[in-house]
Simulated assay, not measured.
Amino acid sequence: MASLRRAMCLGAAVGVATALATTGVAQANDLPGNTTAPAPPPATGNASNQELSAAVSRIKVTQTSGPTGGKRGTLSSTDVNWEPPPCWYEPAMTPEQLKKFSETGLALGQVSPHASWGGQKLWTDHYRDGKDAYNYEDGSLITRKGYDNYNLGEDGYFWRGVATDLEDPDSYGCERVMFWQDAGEIPDVPNAPTARTLAEYAYNKVKVPDTEIELRPTTKSTVNLPTWVWLDKGTFKDVKVRAALPNTGLWAETTAKPVALHLDPGTEDAEVFPASGDCAIHDDGSIGTPYTKANADKTPPCGIRYLRATDGTPYQLSASVTWQITWQGSDGTDGDLPDGTFETTQDMNVQEIQSINR
C-alpha cells in the first residue's frame, strides 16, 4: 500500500508550459493519469523562494529554562513504539509572497510534502487564473478548485503540508495541494496542527546535559569495596522548551524533569545499589550521598561494588538519567509524553588488593 501511495502522490495540473525535466517534479504538461513515482523532492532550486522549495517546518523552538552550556544531547524515548507526528499542515505563503514566487524565475517548489511543481504556468494556472489542480490524496485523484489572482487583498495564508520523515508511509497523509485559509483560523482538515502536535515536535528538540556523575574512587575501583556515586544538588534541573507555529497563535511548552539515574556497571560481576540500579533524584537536584572516608566500607545509597578485577580492558560504566516529559498548550490542553533517557559511559578499572590501609 505504501508503494502504491508513493507512486500516486506526484501532483499534476492541467496546462502546457515549459518546465524543468527533474525527476519527481510535476511539469506543466503532466495530466492526470500521467503521474510517475517521484524521488524525494529537491531541497532547493528556486532562487525566488527557497523556503517553498523545501518542505520544512516553520515551527520555532526556543529553550526557556534549564542549563544551556556544556555538553548536551537529545533524549531517547523509553517507548520504542512512540513516534512524533508524521505530518501536519502549516501556513506557508501570503498572497503577495505566492505571486512573487509564481511569477519569478523557475517557480520550482513543493506544493505538498511529496509533490513538486516545476514551471511558472503550473502555479499561475491554479493560483492566479482559477484553473483546477489535480493530485492524489490518500490514493484518490482529487480535483481542487483554482484561485483568483492569488487571493490578493484577502487576509490569510496558503497552507501546505510538511513531514518529518518523507520515507514514512504515514507522511503521505498531508498531500493536499497548498490551499487557502483565512487569518486567525486553523483549517478543518485531517492532520491540522494542534498544541499537542507542537509538543510532540519539540520532543526531539529538548537538549539535556551530559550525565557526569561523581565517583569515589574515581576511575579505579577495588574488588569488593563499594564505589560511591552521587551528584551535588542543583546539578540536574528541569529543561523547558517552547514550540510556536507562526501566524497561527498555536504554541506548546514541553518540560523535561529529571526523575532517576540508572547505573549499569558494564559487567555481570558487580552489584548495584539500590538493587534496581535506579538512584532517585531528590527535589534539590542531588543524587545519592557524597562519599566520606568514614563511610568507605558502608553500602552507599547509590553506587556499585565490583566483584572481579579488570584484565586490562576497563568495564564500561553506564549512567543514564530518566526525564519525565509533560506539556502545556496555548489552548489550555496539556498531557504527558513518554519518558526520555540520556546515557553516558565511562571507563572503570577495577583492581584486586588484599589489604587496604586507611
Rank of each mutant, 00 (worst) to 15 (best):
M8K: 12
C9S: 14
A12H: 08
V16W: 13
A26F: 03
D30G: 03
L31F: 14
P32T: 09
T36A: 14
A39T: 15
A47F: 12
N49D: 15
E51K: 10
L52P: 00
S53M: 06
R58M: 07
V61P: 01
V61A: 08
S65P: 04
G69W: 06
S76D: 11
T78N: 08
V80T: 14
T94L: 05
E96C: 00
L98W: 02
L106C: 00
A107T: 07
Q110M: 10
H114S: 11
A115C: 14
S116H: 02
W117I: 05
W117S: 03
T124Q: 04
T124D: 01
G130R: 02
K145M: 04
N151G: 03
L152V: 08
G153R: 10
G153E: 11
F158Y: 13
G161S: 08
T164S: 10
D165R: 03
G173N: 12
C174P: 02
D182E: 14
G184H: 02
E185F: 06
I186V: 13
I186N: 09
P190H: 08
Y201E: 08
K205G: 00
V206S: 02
L215R: 15
R216T: 10
R216Y: 13
V223I: 12
T227S: 14
L231T: 07
D232M: 03
G234M: 09
T235W: 00
V241C: 06
A244Q: 10
N247V: 00
L250S: 01
A256K: 02
A260Y: 02
A260P: 01
D269K: 14
A270S: 14
V272I: 15
F273D: 09
P274I: 09
A275R: 13
G277P: 06
A280E: 14
D283M: 05
G285T: 05
S286E: 09
T292R: 12
K293L: 11
N295G: 14
K298P: 00
T299G: 03
R305C: 08
T310F: 10
G312L: 06
Q316K: 15
L317A: 10
S318W: 02
V321P: 01
Q324L: 04
G329Y: 03
T333E: 15
D334V: 00
G335N: 09
L337W: 04
E343L: 12
Q346G: 13
N349M: 07
Q351D: 13
I356V: 15
N357R: 11
N357E: 14
R358H: 13
